[in-house]
Computed example of a mutant assay.
Amino acid sequence: MTDYILDTVHRLQKKLRTKDPFEAARNLGIHVLYRNLNNLKGFYTLRCRERYIVINESLSQNEQKIVCAHELGHDRLHRHFAQYTPLQDLMIYDMTLKPEREANMFATEFLLSDSDILDNADKTVEQLSSFFGVDERYIQLKLQLMLRRV
């Protein structure tokens, strides 16, 4: 499944010519909404054949970008689940559930290219996290994905 997810990301980015998850969502006809969601980071839902990514408006811009990429992953990989219930994310870094792990892989690959990491190979995970504005767990996941391809 990992190879499928990575191929899906690369094909999508090539087709849309963007690494911006907001632009990708717009180009795919997905409505991106911002709401006060309390502790919920965001969710993906499908209503009347319209697709929605709803993001907590209180998150920082970097967090909103990560949530958007994560929910975009749900759209590409798990749309069938959203027909019955919204895919809600209290913790976007949750790796215990398979759909969440897959959406995190999608988001990681969407936001960080191999060359992004290789061009900054002199930095620690903490420095890369700060530099790219993503959680350290995304950097660690990206490194794991890169090692799988070696």
Rank of each mutant, 00 (worst) to 15 (best):
T2F: 09
F110D: 03
A82H: 02
L59Y: 06
Y52Q: 02
Q61D: 15
L12H: 14
F22Y: 15
M1I: 08
N62R: 14
F131W: 05
M95K: 09
R137I: 08
D3Y: 11
N56M: 06
L28F: 11
Y52K: 03
S129A: 13
Y138T: 04
G29I: 14
T18C: 15
R149D: 13
I92R: 02
Q88I: 07
R149P: 08
L16M: 15
I66D: 01
L72W: 09
T85K: 14
R148V: 00
T2G: 14
G73L: 01
L40A: 04
M91Q: 09
L128C: 05
G42N: 10
S115H: 11
V67C: 10
I139R: 05
S113R: 08
R11T: 08
F22V: 09
R76N: 08
F43R: 01
Y138C: 03
V32D: 10
G73Y: 00
I117A: 09
T8V: 13
L16K: 15
Q140L: 12
D114G: 07
A25F: 06
A82T: 04
D94E: 08
R76G: 05
E63S: 13
F22L: 12
L143R: 05
E109I: 01
Y44C: 02
T45H: 04
F131R: 08
P86D: 01
Q83V: 11
V125L: 04
R51Y: 05
T2L: 03
A103P: 09
D20K: 15
K19A: 14
D114V: 13
N104T: 06
V54S: 08
Y4C: 07
L72C: 11
Q88F: 07
H74C: 04
F43L: 04
Y44Q: 04
E109F: 10
P21A: 09
H80M: 10
R76Q: 14
D122H: 09
I30N: 07
L90V: 07
L87T: 00
R17N: 15
R79N: 11
T124M: 03
R149M: 09
L46F: 00
R26D: 15
L59N: 09
K14S: 15
K65G: 07
T8L: 14
P86Q: 03
L128R: 01
E109L: 04
Q144D: 02
Q83T: 11
V150E: 10
I92A: 05
C68I: 03
S113V: 04
R49W: 03
S113W: 06
T96L: 12
T85M: 10
S60N: 13
E100K: 08
I139Y: 06
R11N: 13
Q13E: 13
K41D: 00
D89G: 00
F131A: 09
H74M: 04
V67Q: 10
D135E: 12
E126C: 11
Y93H: 12
K19N: 15
T124C: 03
N27S: 15
N56K: 07
L28V: 15
I139K: 05
F131P: 02
L87Y: 01
V32L: 11
S113P: 12
N39V: 06
D20T: 15
F106E: 00
I117Q: 06
D119M: 00
M91G: 05
A69F: 01
N36C: 09
